[in-house]
């Protein structure tokens, strides 16, 4: 018995030891460790992105009182609404124009900075980053004051050169341009700093080789700088397109969608419809429109980045 008992005990302990070993091995596997380390991030993404997105899809299929399933009714009503198409146009116009301007001005500024000697460069870099550091709502308020038709500095300056007063936030196109100006003001430093970093990483010898090959300064920009920066340009443009497309604060503070809802973008319109007007399902439907447009952009940009990386690195 004693022998049997001791055998049994040792059998149990060896089984539990075996299990513990398996658990240890499992815990030690690189893939397990990697998964465990990403769990917090996954939880955040699920909690703050996946769940709200799924919930928005669900909400968009309900009726106004959120009491019954309404199918695609919200979307159909949006498609029939002129305001919605205005919002879609304004969102695209705003995002594309603002991003192109930010990228171009940022590229130009980066180039200027790159050619300033290091000592002076730090000072200028610091100053040019200020608009990006100030909270957007605050700088938008500053701009709102400057756009004031009667008492503001911009119209006063225009008056100095005999240009008639511009109703910056009262006229649809002037308001659209004002929103773009403010967005460009806030967002350009980000492009500038990214492009400056990219410019610094282009080997000097490539420019020297191009100079000897006969390239003018424009050709060096066209054939060396731009291709070498293509990845960073694609990624910053995509990133900024997403952020700009989803912009809310500038429109909310500067025009609140006016005049006549002509300066609304998807985010501000979704808030207006969903929260301020109390039609949450319709608001959810509006907000969902951003996703497919941005997903398609992201797909193409990231694909070209991956392809270039494979070729060059």
């Amino acid at each position: 018995m004693a022998a049997d008992g001791s055998l049994a005990v040792s059998g149990v302990s060896s089984v539990s030891r075996g299990r513990a070993n398996t658990m240890q091995r499992f815990a030690r596997r690189r893939s397990t460790i990697a998964f465990m380390m990403t769990v917090p991030l996954l939880a955040i993404i699920i909690g703050l992105v996946a769940y709200p997105a799924a919930y928005a899809i669900y909400l968009s299929t309900l009726n106004r009182r959120m009491t019954a399933f309404a199918g695609t009714l919200n979307f159909e009503l949006l498609f029939d609404s002129n305001t919605f198409w205005n919002v879609a146009f304004q969102s695209c116009f705003f995002a594309i124009t603002a991003v192109l301007l930010k990228a171009s001005i940022g590229f130009w500024l980066a180039h200027m900075l790159h050619h300033i000697p290091n000592k002076g460069q730090r000072k200028w870099r610091g100053m040019l980053l200020v608009p990006w550091v100030i909270p957007p709502a605050l700088s938008t308020l500053g701009w709102w004051w400057m756009f004031d038709p009667s008492y503001s500095s911009i119209n006063w300056l225009l008056a100095v050169i005999s240009v008639p007063e511009v109703p910056w936030l009262g006229h649809p196109w002037a308001a659209r341009i004002s929103i773009i100006i403010v967005n460009v003001w806030i967002g350009t430093p980000f492009f500038m700093i990214m492009y400056l970093a990219a410019l610094k990483s282009v080997p000097e010898q490539l420019y020297e080789a191009a100079m000897i090959d006969g390239a003018s300064s424009w050709q060096r920009l066209r054939y060396v700088t731009l291709p070498m920066m293509a990845n960073i340009i694609s990624i910053t443009v995509l990133f900024s397109l997403i952020v700009t497309f989803a912009n809310y604060d500038i429109v909310r503070v500067l025009t609140n969608g006016g005049p006549r809802d002509l300066t609304h973008v998807f985010a501000s319109y979704a808030f207006q419809v969903g929260i301020l007007s109390g039609n949450i399902p319709r608001g959810a439907a509006v907000s969902l429109f951003m996703f497919p447009i941005l997903a398609i952009c992201a797909f193409f940009v990231l694909r070209s980045v991956t392809r270039r990386n494979k070729e060059q690195m």
Partner: peptide, 10 residues
């Protein structure tokens, strides 16, 4: 050049 300076995108 010492490090060849070939254009990587071409």
């Amino acid at each position: 050049f010492q490090n060849y300076a070939l254009y990587p995108h071409m």
